[in-house]
């Protein structure tokens, strides 16, 4: 791969993350929101886009971040995602405590809330597993982490798509589709279930 090729991959990656953010920044809704609500919303938008980085770092597709470097970056980005979720939830809690309490207790009238809360717990679970990776049997760790990631991605996409918020609809649908496809391809490629299939478990 040459330099142009590398530059194009990075440009595409940054566009998928950046375009939804830039378009959300032009939302008219922002004029009627206080800074903490704006920050909470953008933490969600950024989190949605950054989900794309995770599968790419696992497979080492991003030039300069393959192999061990990619794995290390995957861990950092995972930590970043947890931080973004915390900002999202705490910021919305400060903005309207009863709405956030309803969401967290699964009693919200809004259909997107349970998807977001389930994705949140799954992301905490996936990140928590990462801490215990060395102490677990690798096949079990991999299938558990992969399963949680599937819940995170599907939950996040449904959550985002059902919300009428600051995200522009076409870029929201596009980034959602790309995250779904890339995650799906990566899961399929990694075959975390392989050690548990009958043929592969017997030596």
């Amino acid at each position: 791969m040459n330099r142009l090729h590398h530059a194009l991959i990075w440009a595409g990656f940054l566009a998928v993350i950046g375009v939804p953010l830039v378009l959300a920044a032009t939302s008219p809704l922002l004029a009627w929101r206080q800074p903490i609500y704006v920050a909470a919303g953008f933490a969600g938008v950024l989190g949605m886009a950054v989900l794309l980085a995770q599968p790419l770092l696992v497979t080492g597709v991003l030039p300069g971040l393959s192999g061990l470097k990619g794995r290390r970056a995957h861990r950092w980005v995972g930590g970043l995602l947890v931080g973004l979720i915390v900002v999202h939830v705490v910021g919305l809690w400060i903005t309207s405590p009863p709405d956030m309490i309803d969401a967290l207790t699964f009693t919200s009238p809004t259909p997107f809330s349970p998807w977001g809360v389930i994705a949140m717990w799954a992301i905490f679970g996936a990140a928590g597993l990462a801490i215990y990776r060395a102490r677990m049997r690798l096949p079990i760790w991999r299938i558990a982490h992969s399963a949680l990631v599937v819940i995170v991605v599907i939950g996040s996409v449904v959550h985002a798509m059902l919300i009428e918020g600051t995200m522009e609809i076409v870029s929201k649908a596009a980034v959602s589709a790309i995250v779904l496809i890339v995650t799906g391809l990566t899961i399929a490629k990694r075959r975390a279930w392989a050690p548990f299939m009958p043929k592969r478990t017997r030596r």
Binding site: S96, D99, S108
Partner: peptide, 8 residues
């Protein structure tokens, strides 16, 4: 009453 009706 509706869910979330009394919020705020």
């Amino acid at each position: 009453s509706m869910r979330g009706g009394s919020n705020n």
